[in-house]
C-alpha cells in the first residue's frame, strides 16, 4: 500500500465550502505546507475545526488572513487579533467549544460514538442549546460528535502507507482528527518505507490516513 502523493494530488478532492479539521496548537504541529497548498489552490468558504486560529497569518491564521473561512470551530481565538476582528465584523462565524470537549467530540466522530457526556461547561454559557443527561444522579452536558470532509494533519514521521509517529508536544488533537474525517492528508517531515517503523510505537495507524505528502525542506 502506497499513499505517497504530491501536494497537488493530495489536495485534489478539497473543494469550496467543505468542513476541514486542522491539527496544531497555536500553529505548532500544524501542516503548514498543506495550508499553503489550500491557499494556492484557491478554496474558500471553509468551515474549519481547529484548536485555535493560530497567530496572525500563521498556522490556521494563514487561512483566516486570506479570508478563506466562513466559520471556525475552536476552543479559543484570543491568540489571533485578525480572527477576533473578522468575528466582530461579522465576516467569520465562531463557535467555541471547551478544549477537552473539542478533542472528545472529534474522537466521538471518528469512533462511531453518538456523543460525549461531560461536566465541563455546566453552569456556564456552554450549556445553551445543549442537552443535559443524568447518569447515576450526575448531570452531564451532551456534546455531539464532530466530523469533517477533510483533515489536514502533521506528523514527524510517516511510512508510505500512512502509519504515523508524532514528536514532542505537537500531537494535540491530531490523532482524533485523523479518525474523524472522510479524507485525511498528512504532511510528514520524514517519509520512510513500509516496515521501517516499529509497530509498537505507531501513534496513528495507516487505516485512518488517505494521503501522505512529504514536507519540502
Amino acid at each position: 500500500m502506497d499513499k505517497l502523493k504530491t501536494l497537488e494530488e493530495a489536495l485534489a478532492p478539497v473543494k469550496d465550502g467543505m468542513t476541514i479539521m486542522i491539527g496544531g496548537f497555536g500553529g505548532n504541529g500544524s501542516p503548514h505546507q498543506l495550508i499553503e497548498g489550500l491557499i494556492k489552490k484557491g478554496v474558500k468558504d471553509l468551515t474549519v475545526i481547529c484548536n485555535d486560529p493560530g497567530t496572525p497569518n500563521f498556522g490556521n491564521g494563514r487561512l483566516i488572513h486570506e479570508k478563506r473561512e466562513k466559520k471556525l470551530i475552536a476552543s479559543f481565538i484570543s491568540s489571533n487579533k485578525e480572527c477576533q476582528e473578522q468575528h466582530k465584523n461579522g465576516e467569520l462565524e465562531v463557535e467555541l467549544i471547551p478544549q477537552g470537549t473539542l478533542s472528545e467530540a472529534c474522537r466521538a466522530g471518528g469512533a462511531g460514538l453518538g456523543g460525549v457526556l461531560t461536566k465541563t461547561g455546566l453552569g456556564t454559557l456552554v450549556e445553551e442549546g445543549k442537552q443535559k443527561v443524568v447518569v447515576n444522579g450526575q448531570t452531564y452536558l451532551l456534546q455531539e460528535p464532530l466530523r469533517a470532509d477533510v483533515a489536514l494533519i502533521y506528523a514527524k514521521t510517516a511510512d508510505r502507507m500512512g502509519n504515523l509517529i508524532y514528536h514532542g508536544s505537537s500531537r494535540t488533537h491530531t490523532p482524533m482528527m485523523a479518525m474523524a474525517a472522510d479524507y485525511v492528508i498528512v504532511e510528514a517531515a520524514e517519509v520512510v518505507e513500509v516496515g521501517e517503523l516499529n509497530p509498537d510505537y505507531i501513534h496513528t495507524q495507516a487505516i485512518f490516513v488517505d494521503a501522505v505528502v512529504k514536507k519540502e525542506v
Binding site: F76, I77, H87, P98
Partner: peptide, 20 residues
C-alpha cells in the same frame, strides 16, 4: 474567560480544568 462587549477570546482549557 469572557467580557461581554469586548473581543471574543474563548475558554480554551479553563472550563475543563475547573470541572475535573
Amino acid at each position: 474567560y469572557m467580557v461581554p462587549g469586548r473581543a471574543l477570546a474563548g475558554m480554551g482549557g479553563a472550563m475543563d480544568l475547573c470541572s475535573g
